[in-house]
Simulated scan of single mutants.
Amino acid sequence: MSGSSLHGAEFGELDDASASAYQHAVLLGRFVRAEIASALGVTEQEAGRVEEALTTLRLLRPMPGRPDELVPVSPDAAAADLVGPTEAEIREMQQSVTGVKTQMLALLPAYFENRRRRNQTEAFDVVSDVGVLQAMLDECGARCRNEVLTAMPGGSRNAKRMDAARPKALDRLRRGVGIKHLYQHTVRSDLATADYVRAITGEGAEVRTTDEVIDRMVVYDREVAFLPEQHVEGRFPGAIVVREPTLVAFLCKVYDHMWAGATPFTPGGEDATDIADDLKRSIIRLMAQGHKDEMVARRLGMSVRTCRRHIARIMEEMESTSRFQTGVNVALYGLLGADFSPSGAAAGEIAGEIAGLGTS
């Protein structure tokens, strides 16, 4: 771009005196300073200023062959001469701007596609190799600064895995990293888990149990979450590694909600009666929702045999000889509570749900 400015002040201004002088020059066919001064009733000095203004505006130009004699030029020709170069410059700039915008906008599809791929790569990783997954868990655990949250569904734990996990947990606790473990109630009768919990709670870890845990979850510093792969066949499932802040924050809220409703687990110090009652209510609730024994057992982290033993004990406590009668008594005694009973449901409807479950 040249150094010329596109402001109106650079072109000069046509005031009333200059306009009148121009009209007289057109009438006379030329601009004579003395005649213009006389016609306008101004001094020749003022007429000289007007002459300079009209010349700047290209409304006066020297006559060919007579450079000292000025003649008026038509306004359209003067305007073309005055602003033509600037208009050409503007057109050139507009073309340049349009070209640059076209080139830049051509990159938009690639930008959004690669940003989507980058965000997906940064926010989520699918780790199918169990060895790689364990290495990532160990690395996150070693780098963890503040807190580890875990949720582990199921009943009895593998004794060797619990023994291997103990020194890692103790090391983190001694580094000042908080640990929260959330299990299901059924682990309370597992000796390997009880030994592990006794060791880590002695160093400041917190452990709670609840009737149901949605799924496995491990969260480090509320920044990175590990979730299990779903619908995997033919191999041991890996994990999804989540780093997207909003999703990690949501998972932490889900965890906090489950944690708030769970019962502290201190081996040897818990109230077994409260846990047993909680399990009983959970079994009754799942039965009333229409789940078979196998699903009830899976949801509560126990074997089918143990689940059926609990069901038999419930029937005995309810003085029932059949599932139908158990359902009637549950409804009559209000054991499900307002949160579990369908609004306005008759006792027979709940009884029917429980009685209709298969036992195979």
Results as ranks from 00 to 15, higher is better:
232 V>K: 07
245 P>E: 02
250 F>H: 13
247 L>I: 12
268 G>C: 07
262 A>W: 00
216 R>L: 11
248 V>H: 00
231 H>C: 14
252 C>W: 05
220 Y>C: 09
226 F>R: 02
272 A>C: 07
229 E>T: 09
263 T>D: 09
264 P>E: 01
222 R>G: 10
266 T>C: 10
218 V>S: 09
272 A>T: 08
268 G>H: 02
242 V>L: 10
262 A>V: 07
263 T>R: 07
223 E>L: 13
228 P>W: 00
267 P>C: 07
267 P>D: 06
236 F>E: 13
265 F>L: 14
249 A>W: 01
238 G>R: 03
252 C>N: 12
217 M>D: 04
232 V>C: 09
272 A>S: 11
246 T>M: 09
222 R>P: 05
253 K>N: 11
256 D>W: 03
249 A>V: 02
250 F>Q: 15
228 P>Q: 01
258 M>Q: 13
263 T>N: 05
232 V>A: 06
231 H>F: 15
266 T>P: 02
256 D>G: 11
233 E>K: 13
261 G>S: 11
234 G>R: 04
240 I>W: 07
227 L>W: 02
227 L>I: 02
239 A>V: 04
232 V>W: 03
216 R>Y: 08
256 D>P: 03
227 L>D: 06
240 I>T: 09
261 G>T: 10
250 F>E: 15
241 V>S: 06
272 A>M: 08
264 P>Q: 00
239 A>E: 01
250 F>V: 12
253 K>H: 11
235 R>E: 05
241 V>K: 02
220 Y>Q: 02
220 Y>A: 06
265 F>N: 11
236 F>D: 10
256 D>Q: 10
247 L>V: 12
218 V>C: 09
268 G>Q: 00
267 P>W: 01
275 I>S: 04
272 A>P: 07
267 P>H: 02
251 L>C: 04
248 V>L: 01
240 I>V: 15
233 E>Y: 13
246 T>D: 13
262 A>Q: 01
263 T>S: 10
235 R>C: 10
239 A>D: 02
234 G>E: 01
261 G>M: 09
224 V>H: 00
274 D>M: 14
216 R>N: 12
261 G>W: 03
238 G>A: 03
236 F>Q: 14
249 A>Y: 01
219 V>D: 00
248 V>S: 04
226 F>L: 09
228 P>Y: 01
247 L>N: 12
262 A>K: 03
231 H>I: 15
225 A>M: 03
271 D>M: 08
219 V>C: 06
273 T>E: 15
273 T>W: 07
252 C>K: 12
216 R>A: 15
251 L>Y: 08
237 P>L: 06
252 C>P: 08
274 D>Q: 14
224 V>T: 02
243 R>F: 00
270 E>Y: 12
232 V>E: 00
